[in-house]
Design a protein around this nucleic acid. Structure first.
Lengths: 266, 266
DNA sequence: TTGCTCCTCACGTCACGTGAGGTGGC
DNA sequence: TTGCTCCTCACGTCACGTGAGGTGGC
């Protein structure tokens, strides 16, 4: 007859696990010897091994008892169900593997291929790592808010890259992000000339789009996405606030949610 | 700005999960609005999505914070490690699938192919389902105790099946098991003739083996396996006790652990 | 005004892990 | 005698779930 430790070893579980199975009534308490030790027979080994097979398959302990009592057809049905769940779980883990692989590669994350291609194109154009991270985070946000619209927007974004001013804008912002957040935070003695250049280009582009009749600049009426993108920029780099101010000076309100200010800024 | 419910929906988690991440410091507490509600920006959505990707990959929440702070090489290394763990987990689940499939098919369980073949052979010879279950449980026990010796024993077991008496023994025990445990438990008024026949065959076989010089009948000195097999039989069917008694009358002690009694039973 | 979301405790769940304090076996 | 196993509470862990009781927003 086996002690609890031997039983546990045969079945490949801990002693505590065996005691736990007793507590919840999954494994019947065996008889005790003279000194109060539990003594197990062969049946306990067999039961415990079956319990572990089901538990390893993810079956809750609360169901294993009934399962081992069930008759042939009921048991076979349950086994088929468990097998299906295992299959699903394996697929979930395989999808998860792909996701973290992307996460490790630095880009894409959960992003669709078009967006990855767009970010890759930016990299080719010389946009820096920090800026690419910002782009990626922005697209993650876009995917979370409007997953269905991304496919429509991407071609426009590619087309815009044909304009050298757009590329220049990306590169200037790149440089800005890479230059560390700049000595003191509060001293506003003169703007970084690159920030000014970025604002100038931006205003220039918007002016042209406005003249061409682009009424809402892709801002959907009640959607929070542009606001979220604004807040993302602000959280990523406080200098975004200054950028927004500069845009306001040039007659534009907001950065991602864009409105033409009718009057010059007050 | 988003409420906690909107944030949770974008990231595909529960509101409670978001609050939990605040509690453990994984996601920073955002500012509150006038009525004390949390208000989130775009950064929170991005952070939450990254957290979920890592959590879904099985990374403990307690590690995710540091992971997202880590620099490129450290992060890439961690991702490689996580990917390896996912790979292992998938393999574990696939092995588990095979095990429960076997469990569903009724036989083998964790048994090696030779044992499965032996049980299949018994089935062909007409051994009943209940008896086969007993055999299987016995072999599970053997695997738990002496996994390495099974391969040596199986050829002998097959060879024994060439002897018609061995087959007859299996069939008689089969019939016994299938006939329900027999009216009253305590009334020992006359043995089932099949039980007597089984004991006779068994004694006959042992006598022959003893005469041929098989000294220890495969019983290893201090091993508990034969005792466990005895206890398994006893637990599976109380009539096993009577079988042991009958064997003792015929000059043999034990059933699976077998000793020749020097003298006739006292 | 009704229903929905939000808030903060705080206990519950699942499958054990991990001491705490004590006794038995070799 | 020492070290190892066994015993029974009983609290801890992990990632939330689930009310409990109350307030704010539309």
């Amino acid at each position: 007859m086996l002690t609890i430790g031997q039983l546990a070893e045969y079945a490949g579980v801990t002693v505590r696990a065996v005691r736990h199975y007793h507590q919840i009534g999954l494994l019947p308490e065996p008889e005790r010897d003279a000194s109060g030790y539990r003594r197990y027979g062969g049946m306990a080994v067999v039961s415990l091994i079956k319990i572990r097979i089901l538990a390893n398959a993810g079956v809750p302990l609360s169901q294993i008892g009934q399962l081992l009592q069930a008759d042939e057809p009921a048991f076979a049905e349950a086994v088929a169900r468990i097998d299906g769940q295992l299959h699903d779980e394996i697929e979930r883990l395989e999808a998860s593997r792909k996701q973290i692989a992307q996460l490790g590669a630095g880009d894409s994350l959960v992003l669709p291929a078009e967006v990855v291609a767009y970010i890759d194109r930016l990299r080719e154009l010389g946009v820096s790592g920090r800026m690419l991270e910002g782009e990626r985070d922005g697209w993650i946000l876009v995917m979370a808010c409007w997953p269905d619209r991304v496919a429509e927007w991407i071609p426009d974004k590619f087309a815009q890259l044909e304009d050298p001013r757009v590329v220049r804008l990306y590169l200037v912002l790149s440089e800005l992000l890479d230059s560390d957040a700049g000595g003191d935070d509060d001293g506003d003695d003169g703007d970084d000339p690159r920030l000014v250049e970025a604002a100038d280009i931006m205003a220039d582009l918007l002016e042209q789009a406005y003249a061409a009749g682009a009424a809402d600049f892709g801002n959907e009426a009640q959607d929070s996405l542009p606001d979220l993108l604004d807040s993302l920029s602000l959280e990523a780099d406080p200098r975004s606030q200054r950028m927004i101010d500069l845009m306001r000076e040039r007659g534009w309100n907001g950065w991602h949610r864009i409105e033409r200010l009718a009057d010059p800024p007050r």
